[in-house]
Design a protein around this nucleic acid. Structure first.
Lengths: 109, 109
DNA sequence: TAGCACTAGTTTGTCTAGATATATAGACGG
DNA sequence: CCGTCTATATATCTAGACAAACTAGTGCTA
């Protein structure tokens, strides 16, 4: 097993927004999911994730609310705002443009 | 025309090494080529490129030599070392793993 | 031959954001 | 009641991207 790669800077927001689009959830669960969904390729550090969530909240892209989890614990549940949805679309497009361009370069003989 | 995207942190080394693999050249030309090859999607800032080249040289991944260009000017011509070639292969693999994982996440319903 | 634009390369200062490490606290199992 | 899991929080460190200005040589052109 190759060890989980550190995230490329700039991609964490995109990943978080995309995950929240599917379903609102809390930070801890988010980190777990990202790792699971990426089959352990992507690993999100808690110390990276929470500051990222605060930034996103401050920019109005996500909304946070204290709730009880099903296990009866308090947790901040994050959900996408309308602005967040819009931002996600833009970020996705940019990622595709970038990945496409880089892919082109890598494929050159 | 969309404006050229800033590079994702961590990808500059990969791009530079890949370009040098094809042909040794100087910094200025390198920047031009990257922009051209990516059809203006990728734009490399001189202030990012030169520090990156120094780092790569220091790590023994590229070799720099003062030469005369065809226009008779002095320029530092960079070429890949054996270690650089090896490093490039590793970086490429990691990029593919990462891009693949992110792509998977983005494709989830 | 003076002026100007372009090429080649450097330098500095600033900012973003992820990594690491550590702290806190409630819930649950043994 | 102790340790581990869940969950959030935060301080410090670091890489590296970017803007902007600068040096210096070259060559065109008016």
């Amino acid at each position: 097993m190759t060890k989980p790669a550190p995230l490329l800077q700039g991609t964490l927001d995109l990943i978080v927004l995309q995950m929240l689009r599917a379903e609102p959830t809390n930070g801890y669960d988010l980190a777990q999911r990202i790792q699971t969904v990426s089959r352990d390729v992507l690993h999100v550090n808690a110390g990276s994730l929470y500051p990222a969530l605060y930034r996103l909240e401050e920019r109005g892209l996500v909304h946070a609310a204290w709730k009880e989890t099903d296990t009866g614990r308090r947790a901040r549940v994050y959900s996408l705002t309308a602005a967040g949805r819009k931002h996600l679309a833009a970020q996705r497009a940019e990622w595709e443009r970038f990945a496409g361009a880089l892919s082109t370069i890598l494929k050159r003989a």
